[in-house]
Nucleic acid binder design. Structure first.
Length: 482
RNA sequence: UCCUCAGUAGCUCAAUGGUAGAGCAUUCGGCUGUUAACCGAAGGGUUGUAGGUUCGAGUCCUACCUGAGGAGCCA
């Protein structure tokens, strides 16, 4: 039986020996003051117990060990108690028998409150009945801080509403499902970094404060601080990426992004993380190949390292295993035909709505790439198709299972005069783009790149209903705290 | 900004216009293999706010507040 935390995979890498510890003696004295030592005479001294994480328990069966964590749940039956301890690496079911423990220890644990911090000492063994497969026989325990029953832990093991949970998001993160999601998020971010780092890209991060809009000012947050000019929070690092790509060849930036759209759907965050690669001497085809490789690499890593978390999330892993290259590649024209056949009211020249994206992704069992959008729905910097100037060399990658656009990008205009004309056509102030135009004055080359939304990717791979669960502290319209 | 839905115990939810209830949580008691343990008992309420209709409003009407889902927009 999978429990996620409890069934965390055994460490793949050699685990460095845990430092010897003397219980809470490593805590600052202010914390130690409240600790209550429940050590029982006759059992080994504290210093004989090696501190381990719950994930490491399988490698230390039969040894005197201690785990330091929080009380996740407690079941009791007269003279036997089953405290479930979580420590961030997993959940361990412990067993305490009244006859084997001191009165203080047994009563202290028996009356312990949810999420009290506690150190448990004893020995682990394999146990079929325990969630996670291992169980710890308690020899002694030390309560670091007991949660008062006058203010019990608000998130009980029962159901809660969304508003309540996100009002208590700082505590909500301790629960099994949220823990699993953020573990997958970490795996995805690490995979993204590893992919680019091992494929010749250099990380060059871009500014958060930007003086001008990439794609118009309506969706930007204005910052009133700098003396002489209005400054905005970035909505994309792409223009800067084009500069760094001309310096390093292949670069990427990875940071927070801000969109001030008054948008209120399950796909939107006001503040989200985006990774944006940019490549010199590259075309639309290079973008499609890189995007496909990147997605496959990420999915592979998640399947390799986060099976237990996917099980907690009850994710249909077969859907993820189906995500293999080559992804279907269709043109915008073909997409419009498919949508019309499926009853959409889309007309050529318009952008896809959320339901259109869902309809399209239903056609395929893996992500689909849609390229050559009408120039009018794309940003000013997109390179037009040589043979069909009315379409732009841009591509969107729509995730499978209706999760919508996770990647958008394409080839940028490299011709000076064409770019200047497009800036004017879009009523943008050319002087603000002088440095950007410089990139076309001094050794301009065809270049291309894309942006991938981290949270949408996490939401997709975890199979979530709502994107707000994919980030520790979501920022949305009407939600800025905690 | 617009459309739809919802606000009742700490939490999740019931309650034909007629005495506000249950489960969980908390407290007390019982139980030596529990799996969101179980069994018994207790405490816990200005029904989102302000007005109105009515003999009587949690329930009907109006406005507002808060939240959720969606549209537009977007990764």
């Amino acid at each position: 039986m999978e429990t996620g935390l409890g069934a965390a995979p055994l460490p793949r890498l050699a685990v460095p020996p845990a430092p010897r510890t003397e219980g809470v003696s490593r805590l600052p004295s202010a914390h130690r003051l409240r600790a209550r030592d429940l050590h029982q005479p006759g059992v080994p001294l504290m210093s004989d117990y090696r501190r381990i994480t719950i994930a490491q328990a399988g490698a230390h069966t039969g040894e005197p060990v201690e785990i330091a964590g929080w009380l996740y749940n407690l079941r009791k039956s007269g003279k036997i108690i089953f405290p479930l301890i979580r420590d961030g690496s997993g959940i361990m079911q412990c067993v305490g028998l009244k006859n084997n423990l001191s009165e203080d220890c047994f009563e202290g644990l028996k009356n312990l409150t949810q999420e009290s911090s506690v150190i448990i000492r004893g020995k682990c063994r394999a146990e079929e009945r325990a969630p996670g497969g291992f169980e710890m026989d308690i020899e002694s325990a030390e309560i670091v801080q007991r949660v008062s029953e006058e203010t019990p832990y608000p998130i009980t093991p029962k159901e809660h509403g969304i508003e309540f949970l996100f009002d208590h998001r700082h505590l909500h993160l301790r629960s099994r499902r949220q823990h699993a999601i953020l573990k997958v998020r970490h795996e995805i971010i690490k995979a993204i970094r590893d992919y680019f780092d091992s494929n010749g890209f250099t990380l060059v991060d871009c500014p958060i404060f930007t003086p001008a809009a990439c794609e118009g000012t309506t969706t930007l947050f204005e910052v009133d601080y700098f003396e002489d000019e209005k400054v905005y929070l970035t909505q994309s690092g792409q223009l800067y990426n084009e500069a760094t790509a001309m310096a390093f060849g292949k670069t990427y930036c990875f940071g927070p992004t801000f969109r001030a759209e008054k948008s209120k759907t399950r796909r939107h965050l006001t503040e989200f993380w985006m990774v944006e690669p940019e490549m010199a001497y590259a075309t639309l085809d290079d973008v499609k190949r890189t995007a496909e490789e990147l997605i496959c690499f990420i999915v592979g890593r998640v399947l390799e390292n986060r099976r237990a978390e996917l099980a907690v999330l009850e994710r249909d892993v077969a859907k993820l295993e189906a995500i293999k290259g080559p992804f279907p590649r269709i043109s915008y024209d073909e997409a419009v035909e498919i949508l019309k056949r499926k009853g959409s009211e889309i007309v050529w020249g318009g952008d896809f709505g959320g339901t259109d994206e869902t309809l399209l992704s239903e056609e395929f069992d893996r992500p689909v790439m849609v390229d050559r959008y009408p120039t009018q729905v794309k940003a000013f910097y997109f390179q037009p198709d040589e043979n069909r100037p009315e379409v732009a060399l841009g591509v969107d990658v729509l995730a499978s299972e209706g999760y919508g656009e996770v990647i958008g990008g394409g080839q940028r205009i490299h011709d000076f005069n064409l770019l200047l004309q497009r800036i004017k056509d879009h009523d943008l102030p050319p002087e603000a783009f002088n440095w950007y135009l410089d990139l076309r004055r001094f050794g301009s080359v065809p270049h291309a790149g894309f942006g991938m939304g981290v949270e949408r990717t996490v939401s997709w791979l975890c199979g979530l209903e709502h994107i707000r669960e994919t980030i520790a502290f979501p920022r949305m319209l009407y939600r800025t705290r905690p």
